[in-house]
């Protein structure tokens, strides 16, 4: 019986904490000043899959992803698991550097602090170095280690994808 209560509490807590901060289409409109072009598709080739695996520390859970390109700017809406649930993040990359990163949906029970500007502002202007890692260190948030890690992975992934579509 106590196990059923614990399971129920975990499920209930997970559902109760699910939060949508912005709809993807609203983020796109905001990022592209209302002039959203038709989406393009990026297929994950074998070499790209290898790079994605290195960035995420696990194989990608999809074969292709869509993105929106306008001049030197690309917009990505990507998911990464924090602990057990996906965190949906919108990222704008401009000339190989992150210009906007925003948590759009958060379903974990902990680590929601990553949605705040004081944290996401650290990503602005970062690019991928020769080791395919973020160019600067990102300060963590105590109690939100897994969410911070997920955001760092997603940011690096968007930069990797951006570089592969503009090359």
């Amino acid at each position: 019986m106590p196990f059923q209560i614990i399971l129920f509490w975990l499920l209930a807590n997970g559902i109760a904490n699910a939060a949508i901060y912005q709809q993807p289409e609203d983020f796109l409109n905001e990022a592209l000043a209302g002039d959203v072009p038709k989406a393009s598709i990026l297929w994950l080739s074998k070499p790209l899959r290898q790079q994605v695996k290195k960035v995420l520390s696990h194989p990608p859970g999809f074969l292709r992803t869509r993105y929106w390109k306008k001049q030197t700017k690309t917009v990505w809406i990507l998911d990464e698991i924090g602990k057990t649930e996906p965190i949906t993040v919108g990222i704008v990359v401009e000339s190989g550097k992150i210009s906007v990163i925003k948590v759009l949906a958060f379903h974990e029970s902990r680590g929601w602090e990553v949605k705040h500007d004081f944290f996401t502002n650290q990503f602005k202007g970062l690019f991928l170095n020769s080791e395919q890692k973020l160019s600067e260190h990102i300060d963590g948030i105590s109690g939100a280690t897994l969410s911070v890690r997920a955001l760092k992975k997603v940011a690096a992934l968007a930069l990797l994808f951006h570089n592969s579509v503009v090359e």
């Binding site: 949508i20 993807p24 289409e25």
Partner: peptide, 21 residues
């Protein structure tokens, strides 16, 4: 409710489409 999941016939996730009206 807020996304479309595209699957191959082998059960592989091809893509998750989150921009839906």
């Amino acid at each position: 409710s807020r996304k479309i999941l595209l699957l191959s016939r082998d059960g592989e996730i091809v893509e998750q489409i989150k921009t839906v009206p």
